[in-house]
Each structure stands twice: as structure tokens, then as C-alpha cells.
Simulated assay, not measured.
Amino acid sequence: MSKSKISELQYLENYRLLFTNLEEVQDLKTELAEYGYNDTKIAEGKTLLDHTQQLYQQNKQETAEEKEAYAQFADAFSLLKKTYGKHRKVAKVALMKKTELWKSLAIDGSLSAAYLKALEEIKTFYQQAQAHSDAKPLLEKFKIDKTAVDAQVAQIQQVESLRAAYEKEKGESQNATQQKNKAFTELSDWVREFYAVAQIALDDRPQLLESIGKFVRS
């Protein structure tokens, strides 16, 4: 039967309790000091804990900002595609007798699922809607005019700006995760070594060993 995964938050709480008990139980400090775990050595571990807690909170913040940035980008892109979808249908009707123009406006197939390719197809449509001499007058009859195109071009720029912001937040979130994981590893290594020594130092005083538990991150 597999062990249930302990959350990082629970590990932090376990470590906090460890250092709290180390500070409050004088007998523990006395016994461990004889094996090299004096105030200076314990402070080293506490510093690692404080650093890990800080990076954990930073990682949570960066993750939240990444999710928010993605939601803003996704909403803007969804709005762009919704309006484009209507224009696309209208364009096929407007150009029903000139289907050879569909390719020029990139409406001869389905809209690509991939973001970059889809955006390029949408850009092509609105660019050609105003630039193509044969298509422009036919589309304008169905209200795909300069005003409608300019509004969509502005929306495209908004999508691209929000996509850039999301990629920035994504990178910061990934970096924060790496830094947090590194800190957890360093802290858990310290705690693992500490317990190895503590089990020797407190071999004849198991009640003291119990008072600090065994909270080692796997």
C-alpha cells in the first residue's frame, strides 16, 4: 500500500515544530550539543527553514500571477476568435461566388488549433479584408469594413500583449518553483542528517527523540 503524499505545507509545519521543540526543551539542546548540534548548528537549520518558507510563499504568489495572466490572455483570445468566427461565416457568404478568394483570406479550411498558426490566419483575414481589391468591396457590403477590421486588429494587439505577459509570468513561476524545490531539498537533507545524529545522541532517552518526531521530506 503506497504512502499518502504529504503536502509541502505540512512539511513546513513539521519542520517548524521540530525547531520550536529544539528551542524549548533544554535537555534536547544539552544532549545534542555534545554531538555537534549546538546553537550555531541549529541556527543553520532554522535559517534553511526560514529561507524555504519564504520561497514557498513566493512560489505560491508567482503561480497565482501566472494563472491570472493566462486567464486574461485566454479571455482576450476567446473574444477575438468569437468575433472572427462570425466574420469568417459572413465572408464565406459574401464571397460565395468568388470562392477562389477564400484562400487569400485564409478561410478555405478550418481555423488551426495551434495558437500561433490560428493567430496568423486571423491576421491574414483582416489584412486581406482591407487590402484585397476584389474582396474588400464585397465584404464591406456585409459590414466587414474598416471600423470592424480596426477593432479586431486592436484586439489582436491586445492578445499578443497579454500572451507576452503570460509567458513572462510563466517563466517567473517556473524559476520560483525550481528555487523552492532546491530549498526544500537542502532543508530536508539537513533534517535527515540531524535525525541520524539525534537517534544516536538520544538512544538512551527515547522520550526526547519522540518529542521532536521524525519529519523528513521524501
Rank of each mutant, 00 (worst) to 15 (best):
D75T: 04
K81E: 03
D50S: 08
A135F: 05
A106N: 05
A129N: 01
F77G: 01
P137Q: 00
K182M: 09
A201D: 05
Q207D: 15
K97R: 14
A135N: 06
L55E: 12
N14S: 09
F194G: 00
E65K: 10
I144C: 11
W190C: 10
L138H: 03
Q26M: 11
I200H: 05
Q152A: 07
D39S: 11
E167K: 06
Q157W: 01
L48H: 04
V191D: 01
F77M: 10
K143Y: 13
N38G: 06
D39H: 07
Q130I: 00
L101P: 00
V25F: 09
F73Q: 10
H132C: 11
S78G: 14
A154Q: 04
L95F: 05
K136C: 01
L95T: 06
G171I: 02
T83E: 06
E120A: 13
L32G: 02
K146M: 10
Q179W: 04
N181S: 06
T83I: 06
I144S: 05
E167A: 05
D145V: 15
A64N: 15
G213C: 02
V191H: 03
D27N: 15
L105V: 01
K182N: 05
I156H: 01
A33R: 02
A69M: 03
Q199C: 11
E44T: 14
A131D: 14
Q57A: 11
K82L: 14
Y195M: 11
A176I: 01
H132T: 11
E65L: 14
F125S: 04
A113F: 05
N14F: 13
Q54F: 12
A64D: 15
R163D: 14
E34L: 09
K89D: 14
K86C: 11
A43T: 00
E100T: 14
A148M: 09
T30W: 07
L162A: 04
K81V: 05
T147P: 06
